[in-house]
């Protein structure tokens, strides 16, 4: 895989995060299920000063196939917000409700992303399957990146694998 110098990455990330705040609002439904058990999480605003949310918890057995499904919709935007990254991941964490995001490295279970422009009413959805073979606690999270200050939004839940 091609590698990007760390400095270039930082510059790109800074450019993305430096967008003016247009005040876009996003609604998210993130559903995770296995068999008959399911949990759903909804949108929270991210950023400095935002209150940590209490995440839903889904308990499953190791080796069960898990289905994640989401829809993200721009419910309001004063102006179109360009090049928003919709980022989904499943990663191991230390405990349920952990405030700090785990580091995403090559051991991540699932990670996906897509880029899209959003005006009010625009939406994207996704679904995928994965298997958690090892017992532990996992964070399932869908988030925006590059939506602008005050508009970054996420939905998240925890999965306990026995």
């Amino acid at each position: 895989m091609r590698r990007v110098p760390a400095l270039l990455v930082c510059v790109l990330a800074a450019l993305l995060s430096a967008k003016p705040a247009w005040g876009a609002d996003f609604a998210i439904d993130l559903k995770v299920k296995t068999g008959k058990a399911a949990q759903i999480a909804h949108a929270h605003k991210a950023g400095i000063g935002s209150k940590p949310e209490r995440r839903p918890v889904l308990e499953i057995k190791a080796g069960q196939r898990v289905h994640a499904q989401w829809q993200l919709r721009c419910s309001a935007a004063a102006q179109p917000v360009k090049d928003v990254l919709i980022h989904f991941f499943v990663v191991r964490e230390k405990k349920t409700g952990q405030a700090a995001l785990p580091r995403l490295d090559k051991t991540v279970t699932v990670e996906s992303a897509l880029s899209m422009d959003f005006k009010a009413g625009a939406k994207t959805d996704g679904e995928l399957d994965f298997v958690l073979d090892k017992a532990g606690v996992y964070l399932v999270r869908l988030e925006t990146r590059g939506a602008g200050a005050g508009s970054e939004t996420y939905a998240a839940l925890d999965v306990i694998v026995h």
Binding site: I86, V108, T109, V110, E111, S112, A113, L114, S115, M116, D117, A122, T124, D125, G126, E127, L128, D129, F130, V131, D133
Partner: peptide, 25 residues
Amino acid sequence: GTVTAGCFTLNMKPHARVGSRVAFT
């Protein structure tokens, strides 16, 4: 039946990108 599967729906503009990394056995 599939080993694993996924699907994303989006309004795809020029230079839009979609990517995934999925662990499986």
